[in-house]
Design a protein around this nucleic acid. Structure first.
Lengths: 236, 236
DNA sequence: GAATAATTTAACCAACTGGTTAAAACTCTG
DNA sequence: CAGAGTTTTAACCAGTTGGTTAAATTATTC
């Protein structure tokens, strides 16, 4: 009946419990998760959970903070590696989606529980986040000045990027039923999405050509912006 | 201590309870919600909840199905009113965000509970959804043939639209803390977003100019669109 | 094999869960 | 006022929750 431990981990019972707790918390959320279920998922007994982690709250906190840290450091690493806007965005999207493929419940879990438990947040993460924001803002500003992208609010763009990456996983069951997908079809959908999303974003960032979007809607206004700039820039 | 009923509704206690239950379920989810809290939120006692709705499950089901229906019918109405792609998208985004402004917890609630409770879904909703999909696909196909938009998978685009509209509300507490927003600042952020999102999408849908997105990224490949999309043959 | 640590079993606890019930109190309409 | 329906109060129920404990059992190490 109960799910046995997926792999016999050589890292001791702490990590076995932590991973089992992660799976259960991801599926059920903090309120819906039962200590007994976590124990069963780990292939252990309930007493041992309290032997290593004193309470459900402590166990949850360990899982939650680790998830948040992983997600943030994943993004931070990309910002370190890439210094070109287009490559950054493309890589950001690809890595993000690839990571979420392995942890489909993570976005719904983290975002769902974020608002409910303000006590489980760490300070340093917030600082790093603000650094990334600053870095992103400057990168966009430079690209804008070089005429490689159209003007856009960095915060809105960042939210757009995160939305396009994460939301499909949050809405996974809805998408599957509305689009008549099975598990395999959804996986293919996500696979296609890796290139689709970055193409979608980069296409939107193209500098405005002679024909603006407004003209497509209402052909009254004359074209505003001058001719497009040479878009390419030699690499560093 | 307890939150009194927000407005003395003239529609009787059923709707008072239902609205109170909605607020609590939206914040806490099914597992986290307590009947006592719903009663307090409604300014009533727990016995009356069971007097009108027999069980927690029935009460939840009433709230959940109503939310799903509202969300779907909102989208359906837009599809009825608009028959131009650009106007449809712009209106879709605006109406959607405007609705979610009044019900910020709705997306997280519906999407979070969707996967957990397959028993609360209605049949007719699924049928209507598929009709909208079909309609959207044809609309895009026509616009593509007229050269008004670049080629794009309708399913991916629809998911993009929904992601950009809904996800900011799901990630609201995260966005607020990472961007240092208070409630008012977030409201302004959403207000700006109404035009920002449709601009973002429509800008991405612009037909490809001589310079493709691929050229911006890697100048090696010849001009061929990065989004692998089989060239549609002309209409019958 | 003895000593030590890790793990299990099982009983147990107080608190809370959704849910029920019956009698009292209230409100409205006739 | 009388009476029907509504609402409240309060006690109560069985089941479950997170959590504890002590003893029994197993594995490990010296």
């Amino acid at each position: 009946m109960s799910v046995a431990k997926a792999r016999i981990e050589a890292e001791g019972p702490e990590s076995t419990i932590l991973e089992a707790a992660r799976r259960v918390f991801h599926r059920q959320g903090m309120a819906g998760a039962r200590m007994q279920e976590i124990a069963a998922e780990a292939g252990l007994n309930q007493a041992l959970l309290h032997y290593y982690f004193r309470s459900k709250d402590k166990l949850f906190s360990a899982v939650f903070q680790q998830d948040v840290r992983r997600l943030l450091q994943l993004q931070a690493r990309i910002f370190e590696e890439q210094d070109d806007v287009f490559e950054l965005i493309a890589r950001f999207v690809a890595v993000q989606i690839e990571f979420l493929q392995k942890h489909p419940y993570l976005p719904g879990f983290v975002l769902g529980e974020w608002g409910r438990c303000p006590e489980h947040h760490a300070e340093e993460e917030l600082e790093l986040r603000k650094e990334l924001n600053q870095q992103f803002r400057q990168l966009l500003k430079k690209a804008r000045q070089e005429g490689r992208i159209r003007p856009i609010d960095p915060v809105q763009l960042m939210v757009n990027m995160l939305s396009l990456c994460m939301h499909p996983f949050i809405a996974k069951p809805l998408i599957m039923s509305t689009q008549g997908m099975d598990e395999a079809a959804f996986e293919r959908f996500i696979e296609r999405r890796k290139s689709e999303v970055s193409a979608f974003i980069l296409s939107s960032l193209r500098p405005e050509s002679e024909i603006s979007v407004a003209d497509l809607k209402s052909p009254t206004k004359p074209a505003r912006s001058p001719a497009a700039f040479p878009p390419k820039k030699t690499k560093k």
